[in-house]
């Protein structure tokens, strides 16, 4: 009769193989418990989907009413107009920037082509008449002719006595510019003569 000092071991060994059959209702309860949990999960998923859909709908409805409200409808009608303006602005910007890049002679020639008005108007015309600018380049005589007609016009205006009109003032500037241009143009002509 071997003596075992350890009561722990008795219980360890004694209970190790102990595996009684649990009553049948335990499995039924487990199944129903699992079903309940699945239902809970499904409900949770459905509720979360429903909530997200309603939030999306609410935001969507708000967005559409915001866009198609009468006050905004005018804005939509005006929108193309504003767009045009911006396009023009851009064009003028592009013109001004491109102008800066152009050689002096091109600028001068374009001003010669224009019949008075502000500098911006001239710029726009340059943009519109780009092929013409090229023409003037090829025919250096043309701008000179135009210049002559302008000078005659100014003289006419002066003789008519419309001295204080802004158009005249601007034209005066143009005249001044033309005077400068003549000198540069001569230089260009000189260059042209040199290049061949």
């Amino acid at each position: 009769m071997a003596i075992n000092n350890n009561i722990d071991k008795i219980f360890q060994k004694g209970l190790d193989d102990y595996s009684p059959k649990p009553p049948g209702f335990v499995w039924d309860n487990i199944q129903s418990g699992l079903k309940k949990q699945n239902n809970k999960r499904q409900k949770h998923i459905i509720y979360s989907i429903a909530a997200s859909v309603t939030i999306l709908l609410a935001f969507g409805a708000g967005y559409y009413t915001h866009i198609f409200s009468p006050s905004k409808a005018n804005g939509v009608a005006n929108a193309p107009h504003t767009n045009e303006i911006t396009v023009e602005d851009n064009a003028s910007d592009i013109n001004s920037s491109s102008l800066r890049e152009l050689k002096n002679d091109v600028e001068i020639q374009s001003i010669q082509n224009s019949e008075g008005g502000s500098k911006y108007e001239n710029n726009n015309r340059i943009f519109g008449n780009e092929p013409e600018i090229e023409d003037t380049k090829s025919n250096p005589n043309k701008p000179i002719d135009a210049d002559k007609t302008k000078e005659s016009k100014i003289k006419r205006v002066k003789s008519e006595g419309v001295l204080l009109s802004p158009s005249f003032a601007s034209e005066g500037k143009v005249v001044k510019a033309n005077e400068n241009k003549d000198s540069t143009e001569n230089g260009n002509q000189f260059n042209d003569c040199q290049t061949p």
Partner: peptide, 24 residues
Amino acid sequence: EYDSKLVCDDILAEISSKELLDMI
């Protein structure tokens, strides 16, 4: 302190797992 001398190895032959469980 528990007395560790009196427990025998063939106790398991005499006492069933069920009885051990009842004790616990």
